[in-house]
Simulated scan of single mutants.
Amino acid sequence: MTEPLILKQKQGCIGQITLNRPQKLNALSLPMLAELVATIREYDAATDVRAIVICGQARAFAAGADVGTLAQSGAIALYTSGFSEHWDQIAACQTPIIAAVQGYALGGGLELLMACDIIIAAPDAVFGLPETTLGIIPGAGATQRLTRTLGKSLAMEMVLAGRRLTATEACTQGLVSQITQAGEAVSTAMAVAERIAQAGPLATHMAKAALLASYDMPLTAGIKYERTLSALVAASEDRQAGLSALASKTRPIFHGR
């Protein structure tokens, strides 16, 4: 019986996804990406899922895109296949996504991380972009997202010279938010997801949208966008529930309305 490429389970308000191709270090094939996107969309559409956690195994989060998939595709076939667009669809998810990284996160695996919102790293996590050593370049957003995250010089060294970052370096440079104790990346990511799940879902969706807009908008336009969303969420039932709970010193119950 063929093992599923994606394992999923729901724990309370958190949707957990485990990449399940350990024999290939979770190399991202087209079928695997299709299942991943379908699962993320399923969770994103579920009103009772308020955060998503993605993880791999101890040896690797994902060691890149499947080289076999790339090698068998000509230029036009690859361009029209929608392969790289899977990363865009993950980035478009409204629900906050937390990635828990152990071991290798290389090439397309690192691009998958950068399509997530928060990255939690184990001490042994390794981040890199080896594409130019294969005579290709990143094709799922790395040259754009990495430059915005790390700055020009370090992004250039990683892409052009194949430099890999340790977990400590990645945290220092702002690629990951925190480093856990060994073996605790997933549990820490779940704890972060739980804190997000306790917040108002409309507020988290809008705050995520405003934060992501800061990559694309000039400062003045971004601030106007933030103010628009802030005014919009003020009309929600969730806002009233939050203020009422604050006044009564109780925990608010949010319904995403």
Rank of each mutant, 00 (worst) to 15 (best):
Q178H: 07
Y79D: 08
L28T: 11
I40G: 00
L232K: 01
D216F: 13
I97G: 00
H86M: 12
L165S: 10
L33N: 08
A105P: 05
L165K: 12
K8V: 07
P96W: 13
A191P: 09
T80C: 08
T69R: 08
D66R: 00
A247E: 07
L70G: 04
E111S: 14
Q57Y: 06
S177P: 02
D216C: 13
V192C: 14
G256I: 07
L70H: 04
A182C: 14
A38W: 07
G151Q: 12
C93S: 14
S177M: 15
V159H: 12
A63M: 09
I76Y: 11
L19A: 03
L229A: 01
M206Q: 12
A209M: 13
K10C: 02
A91I: 01
S84P: 02
R195Q: 13
G174Q: 04
G74A: 06
A60D: 02
A38P: 04
V159K: 01
L211S: 13
R164H: 07
R50E: 09
T80Y: 05
A65P: 00
E157C: 11
L229H: 14
A247P: 00
G174H: 03
L232E: 11
R50N: 08
N26V: 15
S248E: 11
A60R: 00
C13A: 09
R257T: 10
P252V: 12
L36P: 01
G183Y: 13
G15N: 01
D48E: 15
S153F: 09
S81K: 03
Y79L: 07
P96L: 02
L112F: 06
I54Q: 08
Q57T: 05
F61T: 06
A100K: 06
A142H: 06
A58S: 01
L25F: 15
I54F: 00
G64T: 03
F127P: 09
E237H: 04
S153V: 09
H86K: 03
D238C: 03
Q16T: 10
P22W: 02
M114N: 08
A140S: 11
L134W: 14
T180C: 05
T147I: 10
E85Q: 11
